[in-house]
Simulated assay, not measured.
Amino acid sequence: MTKNETLFHYTDVSALSSILRNKVLWLTNLGYLNDSQEFHDGVAVVSRVIERLVAREGCVFEQRGGGLAFAQGVLQCYKDCGVWSSLYSCSFSGAGNLLSQWRAYGNYAIEFCREGLESALSLHDCVYDAAAKESLAERVLKPFIEEAEDYMETDFAEDMPGLACLTEKISTFKNEHFAAEHEVRIIGKSDYHMSGVKFRPRGDLLIPYQEISFPVESVVAIHIGPIANQDLAENSLSMLLRSCGLTRVRIVKSDIPFRA
């Protein structure tokens, strides 16, 4: 993906109104995203890579046995305790007017300039290809295992740069069946006390989320999905944009045929 591309945040009308009026994006807890295997896929990849590293470079890792054991313990903790409970993500798609996205997330999409978003926020491209995921996992694991030797005897393991990097990469590994979404993410983390975590209802569930400010000038357009009464939706959306001081933001109506 190039820096001057646009990214699309698909959402429903309620969230759209909140995002535009409050100038904040919502980062949803990883355990409550549409992919039921969220984070599990990344943990499985890293586990396989560790096994391969041990088989290929066993003598080297014997000298760093403590670091290797620490890495294996971290992965086991991820599997058992669900570390994704502290991870949050806001998702964007590189694909505009994608029917599967309209169906999954809502009838509106905010189009952002990627470069504008990256002027204030860190974006992470999701990885779908199996070989690419394993290659990236190996590049992150080796320095992490070396670094673990210095941290494992302390009480500051959570401060390890290597651990943060490993967790971040695992958070971007996605099942290949989602590749058409070309997903890009903002990744956040909550503390033990859930400071700053909010909750919104969805059906019978409470969805944990965090809010993060974004550069409002990065909004390029608002897209209206394949819904009935697109003209009425355009009129009220135009009024909302005017009330938010976003009069230069374009409104684009999807040309996908709609049937009620």
Rank of each mutant, 00 (worst) to 15 (best):
S17M: 10
H223F: 06
F258P: 11
W102T: 07
S243K: 11
N175V: 11
R114F: 07
F39E: 09
V252T: 13
N97L: 09
L68N: 10
C59Y: 13
F214N: 00
Y88E: 06
S238V: 05
V252E: 15
S86Y: 08
E111W: 10
A104Q: 00
L27W: 04
A55S: 15
E217K: 15
H223S: 11
F144V: 13
T154Y: 10
R52H: 03
N4G: 11
S243Q: 15
R185C: 01
M239R: 13
D35E: 03
L27V: 07
S36H: 11
L25P: 01
L141P: 06
Q72C: 10
H182G: 00
V249M: 01
F70I: 10
R139S: 09
S238F: 10
V249F: 03
Y88S: 02
G196Y: 01
V49W: 05
I19Q: 02
G66N: 04
G66D: 05
C77T: 13
M160Y: 03
P215M: 03
Q210P: 04
G196K: 01
V24W: 01
I186A: 02
T172E: 00
C77E: 12
S100A: 09
V13H: 03
G58A: 12
G162A: 08
E146W: 04
S238M: 07
Y10F: 07
S85R: 15
A120P: 01
Y209T: 00
I19V: 08
